[in-house]
């Protein structure tokens, strides 16, 4: 079977999906960075098999990690910090692909929590609730 997706991201059981995803360019507040991050030594080495990122993406990942550690660094063990670094790093290519997908200024966000059920010109081939041929006996 062919595969048109080059993504290495996860699949069905939704777990990793929520985990592998990452963050965007939300920069940590400078006051937080200056206090907590200095007090908390960070495991800064790159994870093994880390994806190759552009310098811009690498900076973004680092700022994200710093933001997390600045706010909550004292909650994590060194192993957890390394894991957070890995998660944030591995998620960046997915984020870069999403951003690279061309959308027009006029493309609307599907944010009204509805599936596409109310087509303007194309009536559904069947009503949502099909009419039974006979009176349902049990329903």
């Amino acid at each position: 079977m062919g595969n048109n997706s080059d993504s290495a991201i996860s699949r069905r059981e939704f777990a990793r999906r929520a985990a592998l995803v990452s963050a965007a360019a939300s920069l940590a507040p400078s006051n937080l960075l200056s206090s907590e991050s200095l007090a908390t030594p960070l495991p800064a080495q790159q994870p093994v098999n880390a994806p190759k990122l552009s310098p811009e993406s690498q900076v973004e990942v680092e700022s994200r990690i710093q933001s997390i550690f600045a706010q909550s660094g004292n909650r994590f063990s060194d192993a957890q910090k390394a894991d957070i670094r890995r998660l944030a790093t591995e998620a960046q290519p997915s984020l870069d692909r999403l951003r690279a997908f061309a959308t027009d200024n006029g493309d609307g966000p599907g944010l009204y929590l509805k599936p596409l059920m109310e087509r303007e010109k194309k009536p559904s081939p069947m009503p949502a609730t099909p009419k039974p041929a006979n009176t349902p006996k049990n329903s």
């Binding site: 777990a15 990793r16 929520a18 985990a19 995803v21 990452s22 963050a23 965007a24 360019a25 939300s26 994200r64 933001s67 997390i68 909550s72 994590f76 957890q80 894991d83 957070i84 998660l87 944030a88 998620a91």
Partner: peptide, 14 residues
Amino acid sequence: PLGQIAGYVNEQYS
């Protein structure tokens, strides 16, 4: 172990 930390990463979305 993943559930204990992934939320912090996910919170960072813009």
